[in-house]
């Protein structure tokens, strides 16, 4: 092909989400009449999920679907892009934030600084907390040891919990032996795939981040080599992908819940209005902290604040 691309995504070979990225790759090939060929790299196949951002930046990988919380140290604004705790889960509101209220321009600039082109983001299901004991009210988080890396850790500390750093491979054993009382996953489906329900039954009803918005990024110099018509085709395929993610991830989320319920998952009781308020406050408390992490972060938080007024 005229352009040989490698596309690294977050998921392992054989997973349902992995298939959606595969269909983005196939679409790019099909829509460009084979002028762009895209080789899919699943998680761990050459580049670890932690390394996707750096690999696309350096051009080792042409295109990537990174999970921004893993790159908080490289691009702090990415954490805000994904969605801060307490944020909305309404896709229309989210898209409004990006395309009408100004996040798009800020992010394009932020990614460009790293030599990356920011394509249409897509929405994935929110982050939920799974605990060994039911959480009856927000007070129950007091002293609870919950595996929650990075940004989510700060949020849980605001609620009185004790966030724990653990690597993914140790969550199952740690839940089962009681090293931790609960864990977040990168979304609901993660909990299903990790079989965490076998060792911790209770899902808390309120998501940690409303919905997760994840970017698709392309290496700038590879992008520049594309003629305008191909650029449009890649953008078009990404928009289709975003749509597919939205519909499919809802379906899969429902399916994952059904699977987990069958294995004995229970929901913690419905949070009260006071709980919801405490939750929202714990999230808003973080805004100023995040704004400090860089100029782009500050600008994105400004947009949020204006929106909240």
């Amino acid at each position: 092909a005229e352009h040989n691309w490698r596309f690294a995504n977050l998921y392992s070979r054989g997973t349902a989400f992995g298939e959606v990225y595969q269909s983005l790759a196939d679409n790019i090939e099909k829509m460009s009449d084979g002028r762009i060929s895209v080789q899919m790299m699943y998680a761990g196949e050459g580049v670890s999920t932690n390394g996707i951002f750096g690999a696309v930046k350096s051009g080792l990988i042409t295109m990537g679907a990174p999970f921004q919380p893993m790159h908080a140290g490289e691009m702090p604004a990415g954490i805000i892009e994904v969605g801060l705790p307490g944020g909305t889960d309404n896709p229309a509101e989210l898209m409004d934030l990006f395309y009408e209220k100004g996040w798009q321009a800020i992010l394009e600039e932020a990614y460009a600084e790293h030599g990356l082109v920011w394509l249409e983001p897509y929405i994935q299901p929110p982050v939920y907390i799974l605990t060994k004991e039911p959480v009856n009210s927000v007070e129950d988080f007091q002293g609870l040891k919950i595996r929650a890396p990075g940004a989510y850790g700060k949020f849980l500390r605001n609620l009185g919990a004790s966030p724990v750093n653990l690597t993914w491979g140790e969550i199952y054993t740690s839940l089962s032996t009681g090293v931790i009382d609960g864990s977040i996953g990168s979304n609901l489906i993660d909990h299903r795939d990790g079989n965490h329900v076998e060792v911790a039954k209770y899902m808390y009803r309120m998501p940690l981040a409303g919905a997760q918005v994840l970017p698709v990024i392309v290496n700038q110099s590879a992008w520049n080599k594309l003629p305008d018509d191909l650029k449009e085709i890649v953008r078009g395929a990404t928009a289709i992908h975003a749509q597919e993610q939205l519909t499919k991830s809802r379906l899969w989320e429902a399916q994952a819940i059904a699977d987990m319920e069958e294995k004995g998952m229970k929901w913690s009781p419905e949070p009260s209005e006071a709980d919801k308020a405490a939750w929202k406050a714990a999230g808003a408390n973080l805004w100023d902290e995040y704004a400090k992490e860089g100029p782009f972060s500050a600008r994105m938080i400004d947009v949020l604040k204006k929106d909240a007024m």
């Binding site: 761990g44 690999a55 051009g59």
Partner: peptide
């Protein structure tokens, strides 16, 4: 030369592996 960029991600998955 681009293949040299495999090193940072490999370092990340070996030297920063808690397992």
């Amino acid at each position: 030369e681009g293949i040299f960029n495999l090193i940072p991600s490999t370092i990340d998955s070996t030297y920063f592996s808690f397992i």
